[in-house]
Computed example of a mutant assay.
Amino acid sequence: MRAYQLNAFGIDHLQLTEQPAPRPGPGQVLVKMEAASLNFRDHLLVNGTLYRDVALPLTPVSDGAGTVLEVGEGVTRFRPGDRVTTFYKARWLAGAMRPEWEGADLGGPGPGAMRELACYDAYTLARTPSHMSALQAATLPIAALTAWTALEQAHVTAGQTVLLLGTGGVSLFAMQLAKARGAKVILLSSSDEKLERAKTLGTDIGINYARHPAWAPLVREATDGRGADTVIETVGASTFRQSVQATAMHGFIGIVGFMGGREAEVPLVDAILKRIHLQGISVASLEDHEKMVRALEAIQLQPVLDAVYGFGELRAAFEHLAGGKHFGKIGIDFTK
């Protein structure tokens, strides 16, 4: 079977190799992988920016989807023919995250999705939403679950306002899910074209932050002076102060990303006087993923794919991701 290996850090060290076909052991499921999608985490890992302690060689990319071919002894969760999606935090089945469950993440340090056949523990897989293709389902494990978790923890409901920073996968999933809850969505982008595309998907108000670098007052103006009830902070240090300024009293800031810097200064007076809830978010449990799948089926959500590459085009897909110009997710179709 074909499989990618990262032999040293850097995109030039991604190699397409031939490897023996695996067989499932007890508790395992053999999956014919059909699609994958890229996350910013994959970019950081491949380039050694944040995960240099990961052992190499490694099969990269955390998120994928496919069809069950065979199940090992004792597996009752799936059967051949079932359509499945990978689950990123391989040991986090339910409840609160624990330190001892770290270190088994798919796509580093555990093997990732970029292989034609893969054996997974049965509890490292989730059912694919019935209305989605493998390519669509491959966008869910990190981006969709992160967005879902942020809105769940913020208790977003009808009539509230959600502020989203940018048009990456997390932001667009959050936009779609927030609209399904009856919320108003304000979205930031440096591109008028992207803002118009976001409005066709349901965004209520778009703000071009390149034209309006001080955008927090515009958010308050659009909310009659209150500010946003929920902010999904996908950027990091460079936007954090304005996110606090744009948040309503008793509002919620879900801290998701750090592309704009990892060390943020917290404007403590504003945070205290507004009684803001700051919550770090890094996906969620398998139980939460399964709840999300049922919700996605109920609303028939369609993931937003910016571009789709073939199995042999992984480097080009990473270059697209690194460019930062995508709108939604970047997918990899193994049949191309």
Rank of each mutant, 00 (worst) to 15 (best):
Q176N: 11
K199L: 07
K291E: 14
E116N: 05
A94S: 14
Q279M: 12
R23A: 15
M1R: 08
V283W: 05
A104L: 11
P24L: 09
I142G: 00
H131Y: 10
V231N: 03
G323M: 00
A21Q: 14
L135W: 06
A122W: 03
K325R: 15
P60A: 08
E319Q: 08
V170I: 13
S189W: 02
K274E: 06
E313G: 01
I142T: 08
V75S: 06
G280E: 08
A284N: 15
G25Y: 07
L30N: 10
A316G: 10
L278T: 01
F327D: 03
E265P: 06
P26Q: 12
L195E: 02
P80S: 05
E287P: 04
G206L: 06
D306W: 02
P99Q: 09
I142S: 09
D105T: 15
L201F: 09
L69F: 05
G310Y: 03
L6E: 04
G72W: 02
F240I: 09
P111L: 12
T128L: 15
I205G: 02
K274L: 07
K179T: 03
A143H: 07
S133V: 00
E196Y: 05
R241H: 14
T124A: 15
R220T: 01
T128P: 11
P57C: 01
L140M: 11
A158I: 07
L296K: 06
D105Q: 15
A113S: 15
Q279A: 13
L163N: 05
D105F: 09
G74C: 06
K329F: 07
L58H: 01
Y123L: 14
A36T: 00
E233F: 06
S130P: 03
N7A: 12
A90V: 09
L273K: 13
R77H: 06
P57R: 05
I332W: 02
R197K: 15
A8N: 15
N7I: 15
Q279G: 12
T223S: 00
V68E: 00
L30C: 01
I186F: 00
T223D: 04
T139F: 09
T200L: 13
A228R: 02
L6M: 11
P213C: 04
Q279D: 11
S130V: 14
M97D: 12
P99G: 12
E116S: 07
E196L: 13
T86I: 05
P303R: 13
E73A: 12
L50C: 11
G74S: 09
H13W: 11
G64Q: 01
H289D: 06
R115A: 11
S285D: 05
S37D: 03
D192L: 08
G48V: 04
E221F: 05
W92N: 10
E221T: 00
L188Q: 07
V266M: 10
L163F: 09
V231R: 07
V231W: 02
F311I: 03
R91F: 04
M1G: 04
I142A: 13
R98A: 13
G261Q: 04
L177R: 13
G236N: 09
D82F: 02
T17S: 14
I330M: 06
A228I: 02
Y88G: 05
A284E: 08
L165P: 00
A210P: 07
R52Y: 04
I11C: 05
R275F: 03
D63H: 09
H212R: 12
G107V: 07
A3F: 06
L125V: 02
S133P: 03
D270H: 13
T49Q: 14
